[in-house]
Design a protein around this nucleic acid. Structure first.
Lengths: 251, 251
DNA sequence: CAGTGGTCTAGACCACTGC
DNA sequence: CAGTGGTCTAGACCACTGT
């Protein structure tokens, strides 16, 4: 009775390499990635896959959970699992703290608070009362990052009393206002006059910009716009098909 | 005998929200994110956490596996689990196929092959014989992406016979040479003369560049440099602390 | 209300690693 | 060789959802 989908001709073969859940994951990922299974195609039910692979349901479920996290499949109770409507690549970028990055290379890390004022945060989708900070981070006296930050004073009232000329906003926020959700945006901009001078670069130079918006539960806490010095700055990300594979890339 | 680490004062409390493994994950993530547990600090052993949380080892292990995947902890057999030396943010960016992106907005998608030649791929870390393609993708007749691609002909000899003037390289490669590993780099560049014209933009305009290098097992297969038209193009990524949380962001 | 995925348990054995 | 994490099983119950 459960064999409805078994009529489809499917070559699901284990390669014998690594843990069983990883093999099952690859066996199902292969026809999806290669396009053999079209978006929307039904994937055999978990309990059928258990029989086919001689595995327990936990193991099969683990493989399918990985695939769902990667965005290759969608799972719905009662209906079953299906190939995701739009199979996309996921690249996970590691966003390291500037201070850590500079010091891990053996460089001298510098921090300056350039501006601190109370401002209306509505321009950056925060509340009326927000703390606006402008910070410069440097490596061996050379500016590497300009940090424009807004902190919602309704969400983090203690921020108003904090002296940010020595304590950096990022670790302070982590300690005092742990967030629960963040959203990142990356873009490229041509440097304009005020910021160009602060980064010791010519106006017009292309720079990588990383914006981050952070929530605590449902309330927005902070918005930050990080402008990295120079076009050469790069974010390196590794694709993660390896989740559950033998050669897993770790940090 | 296993209580060595239990001497540390630790407030690990479950919040009762959602699945148990997610609660355990949050309970351990909280003191790490807030900085209460410094990098390198020892995390209680799995079997101790089972007792503390009245959970099975599978459930505790699931929570710790999530934390390890997020980069918050590192786990070593025989030694135990520890707070990661450098707690970093991970942002997962979804890299959608241009064609899908344009068409999902209801736009008209266009594709042109501008150049096709055999070239030496050593400049981009590929083999001597490589196929070099230059493709332009457009939305409603406006160029949105310039794709410079190299395909290693040793890894994918069939590529030499393929007519890429209609079939796009991306789906073709997916079908014929499934990769197993990919590495992404994002950067910002100032457009230079040949490419500026092809994207119908002025030279000097800042553009977002996404480079992807792809391997099949250990052999490099293809390298692609995608230049997105205009500074306004953005990659949006959602942070994923929610893995195993109730409100999971999906696609 | 039937059937799917989602979670959980109480065991078990293995692999690796430091002593 | 002892003890950790890594994996796996054979059950079980629950939550959700379409009919």
């Amino acid at each position: 009775m459960t064999g409805r989908r078994d009529n489809e001709k499917m070559v699901l073969r284990l390669d014998g390499a690594g843990p069983l859940y990883a093999q099952i994951r690859r066996a199902i990922a292969a026809p999806i990635i290669s396009g053999t299974w079209r978006p929307g195609a039904a994937i055999p039910f978990e309990r059928d896959l258990c029989v086919r692979f001689s595995a327990s349901r936990m193991t099969v479920s683990r493989a399918l959970t990985l695939l769902a996290d990667e965005g290759l499949i969608v799972r719905t109770r009662r209906k079953g699992s299906f190939v995701a409507p739009q199979v996309s690549h996921h690249a996970s970028f590691e966003i390291v703290d500037v201070c850590d990055e500079v010091q891990s290379d053996g460089g001298h890390y510098g921090y300056e608070l350039l501006k601190k004022e109370i401002a209306n945060g509505s321009a950056v989708n925060l509340g009326d009362k927000a703390l606006h900070l402008l910070c410069r981070h440097s490596r061996d006296q050379h500016p590497v990052l300009l940090e424009e930050r807004w902190i919602d004073l309704a969400a983090a009232p203690e921020a108003g009393d904090q002296d940010f000329s020595i304590e950096r906003p990022t670790p302070w926020l982590l300690h005092h206002v742990p967030w629960t959700r963040a959203e990142h945006q990356m873009s490229a901009i041509n440097l304009v006059t005020p910021n160009a001078a602060l980064l010791a670069l010519e106006p017009g130079v292309a720079c990588l910009v990383l914006e981050r918006r952070t929530w605590r539960d449902q309330t927005p806490v902070t918005y930050v716009k990080n402008t990295y010095a120079g076009p050469s700055h790069r974010l390196i990300g590794r694709f993660e098909p390896a989740k559950g594979d033998s050669g897993r890339s770790k940090g």
